[in-house]
Nucleic acid binder design. Structure first.
Lengths: 222, 222
DNA sequence: GATTTAATTTTGATTACTCAAAATTGACAA
DNA sequence: TTGTCAATTTTGAGTAATCAAAATTAAATC
């Protein structure tokens, strides 16, 4: 049986949740999953038990959930579709990068494999989407780059923005208007723990100060 | 409340059904509706009663159903989306005309107004889709051309294919392989009621014979 | 007018997904 | 060890959409 949009969304959320696990953690907590999907905790429990029955996840009561190989394959497929569609909407259709998330969120569940392959071909088998998020390969591998955030990269050294890990439209518009999109070169001038902020020099030598929370969402390469 | 995909499909089927009504008929019979949607007759009855409650249709028990102004507006919107998406997938994405129906069927319910407008713009406010089916305008008007079919057009007279009223992929491939797509010029050589067939001369003077049922699906202009 | 038939409606049930609120569990602190 | 608390699970209920099969209706035939 092919998975419903709902099931695909659960798997995707668990998949993304797993990549955010820190340290020795193995399982995505139910609360986090429910939060990510915007549903009541009890609903998540019920659904995850069903997914477990289908062999898509391993569920440990009170501890959390993780994907099986089968679940991971499906999740990677959905994420691949999402990111290819986002890039397509920006590159081919000419939409803005802060406009494409919701359309991709819907289209990822319904378009044919043929259309996805055609998009992949048109875009030349791209590796990242407009936000710099890596696109899983057709066989379900998620390429991993080790990137530093603006909170950890070296000071007074030119770095290139590689990834923006927040889909919020207002945030993306802020990034764009301040010339901080992936590909642009910037430099961290100073960090201040007390004021919880980071001071940057932008592409055009423009100086700006952003909060630490925002800075943590900007990933760069040396 | 925004209509579900299911509701949109019911409205679209009723809308299309209305355009097929012959003579003094006003209402789409429930059986025809259920058939078009591939659902059990009882399901159609239940759903249509609910649509009637919402003011989207007028339902006359045992007689059938028709759209209200509100229902018509929604239906035209869905049909517009469907046909714009089909044309987009052919013209921009480079899919074949026999491949796009299913994707359009799904996408019509989920893509944003912004994306549809962008598509409309990219295509230059087109009037017909790849099959020659008219695209409803943004304000819900369905342009109507009076076309003759190959069963009724004059003999031995060059005519241009304007519309193919069948979405079946095999049929569309047949049409394409015989150079009978919209825009191509052909001529009806003869009709034979006994053998239930029509004899044509194609673009390259190729002669062919097709059945009356197929011929009725090819609409032409003089 | 009575009867048959085909279309339609009604009935009863099922599946997938959801929530609110009550009950439970496990971990940590006292 | 016991109590507290937050996270989680369970319970009971609701919505939307569907089907199969029984009941009904309208129309057509006799």
């Amino acid at each position: 049986m092919l998975p419903s949009s709902t099931v695909e969304n659960y798997l995707k959320a668990i998949y993304v949740g797993e990549t955010h696990l820190t340290g020795g953690e193995q399982l995505v907590p139910m609360g986090q999953l429910a939060g990510a999907l915007g549903i009541a905790p009890g609903t998540a429990t019920t659904m995850v038990k069903a997914l477990s029955e289908s062999g898509l996840v391993v569920y440990e009561p009170y501890n959390g959930v993780r994907l099986t190989a089968a679940g991971q394959k499906l999740a990677a497929r959905v994420l691949r579709r999402h990111r290819l569609i986002e890039l397509f909407l920006v590159q081919v259709v000419g939409m803005k990068w802060d406009e494409v998330h919701d359309d991709a969120e819907q289209m990822e569940h319904v378009v044919s494999d043929r259309l996805i392959e055609r998009i992949d071909e048109m875009l030349g088998q791209p590796e990242v989407d407009p936000h710099g998020d890596p696109i899983p390969t057709a066989d379900g591998q998620l390429p991993h780059r080790t990137l530093e955030s603006l909170l950890t990269c070296p000071l007074h050294t030119p770095v290139t923005v590689a990834r923006v890990t927040d889909q919020d439209a207002a945030f993306l518009r802020f990034i764009e208007s301040h010339n901080l999109k992936p590909g642009q070169t910037i430099e961290v001038e100073a960090r201040d723990d007390v004021s919880d902020s980071v001071r940057l020099k932008g592409a055009n030598n423009a100086l700006m100060t952003i909060g630490a929370r925002a800075a943590s969402k900007l990933l760069v390469t040396g």
